[in-house]
Amino acid sequence: MFAAIASGNPIQLSVEVPNSNGLQHTIVLSSTKPKLYSHISLFVLPNVTFPANYIATVYFKLNPNEEFKLFGYLDVEKPSAIFKVKLPNSGHTPAPVGDGLGEIDMDTEEAPSLGTTSNISELIIGISIEPRDIGLPRLEEWKAERSASANSSSLIVARSGAARGINTVGQLASVYPILTQDLAAKIVQHAYNYLSGFLDMNGNVSIKRFDTWWDKFKNRLANDGSFLDEVTSN
């Protein structure tokens, strides 16, 4: 009934889930080169007549042990959609909340270091066909939650570090020492690049300049931390 294509990969047809009270269809996208996932197209097959009073809510997850997360819908007026997929450290700037399907931020806990991609081997799409008067209110609630969240401009399919008991920077450094070193180096380099433009005749910088850098850095980090990937030594 449905099909999906991840860029650089063959088309995958949906499979019906027998005796299901929830998701009626699933699609498993797999690849030996997950970094090829830059866009995913999901659509109703051409020979299928979709009932006008129903919608197909769409869910995603990264492995069978995770819970599905809502990401949008298809219906008779919207039989297809394209997803932008953000792999770890891709530096992509998320899009604003729209109607229906949006972006998938696929940062995962396995990312070994900045500038590399995680070993994502599959992406699982779940599709539930349900009456419009049931599915649409759920979608409106979903969009409201996204708009109210700190990262309202992006959708996240993630296995958070908190699931592994990572709650402090020390724990982060213990689990990801190389990543933490790279992060620290990027922050120091960013500060150096900024402050070096304010050296006086003796090679000193006012502490007020540092305070200004820190305020700007925190604001930029809160909006889009991917700028750190572009920090280089001058």
Rank of each mutant, 00 (worst) to 15 (best):
A81R: 08
N21P: 06
E77P: 07
F43H: 06
Y54N: 13
F60Y: 05
T57S: 12
Y37G: 05
L23W: 10
I5T: 04
N19R: 15
S20T: 14
N9P: 02
L123C: 00
F60R: 07
V48C: 13
T93R: 05
I104E: 02
P46Q: 13
L13Y: 14
L23T: 08
P18Y: 10
I120Y: 00
I124N: 07
L70I: 04
N47K: 15
V17K: 14
L87I: 03
T108F: 00
S31P: 01
E109H: 06
P64V: 03
N53F: 14
L136F: 14
Y37W: 15
L70V: 02
G8W: 04
M106V: 02
K35W: 15
F43W: 08
F50H: 10
K61D: 03
S113E: 14
P94V: 11
I134S: 11
L74Q: 11
G91L: 08
V97K: 08
T57P: 08
K78W: 01
L23N: 15
T32G: 14
N19W: 12
P10N: 09
N65R: 04
T32W: 13
I120M: 07
P34H: 10
D105I: 01
I120D: 00
S128T: 12
V76W: 11
D75S: 15
F50W: 12
D107K: 07
D105K: 05
D99P: 08
P34C: 07
H92T: 12
N47L: 10
N89C: 11
V17A: 03
V76A: 15
S118Q: 09
A111Y: 02
L13E: 06
N63S: 12
Q24A: 05
V17Q: 08
N63A: 04
T26F: 05
I120V: 10
L123M: 01
P79S: 07
N89P: 02
I124P: 04
V17W: 11
L87T: 01
Y37T: 00
E122D: 04
A6N: 02
K86L: 04
E122S: 13
Q24C: 07
T57W: 00
G126P: 09
A95T: 15
A6Q: 01
L101Q: 10
I27K: 14
F50N: 03
D105G: 13
S118T: 14
P131V: 15
N21G: 10
A6K: 10
F60W: 10
P34V: 03
L45E: 13
S128I: 04
S7I: 00
R132T: 14
F60V: 01
S80M: 05
N53C: 12
G115W: 01
E110M: 03
S31E: 01
E110F: 02
N21S: 14
P94G: 13
P18W: 11
I134H: 09
T32Q: 12
K78D: 02
L45V: 06
I104R: 09
G72Y: 01
G126W: 00
S14L: 05
T32H: 12
P64L: 01
P18S: 04
G72P: 04
K78V: 01
I5G: 05
V58R: 11
K61F: 01
F60N: 02
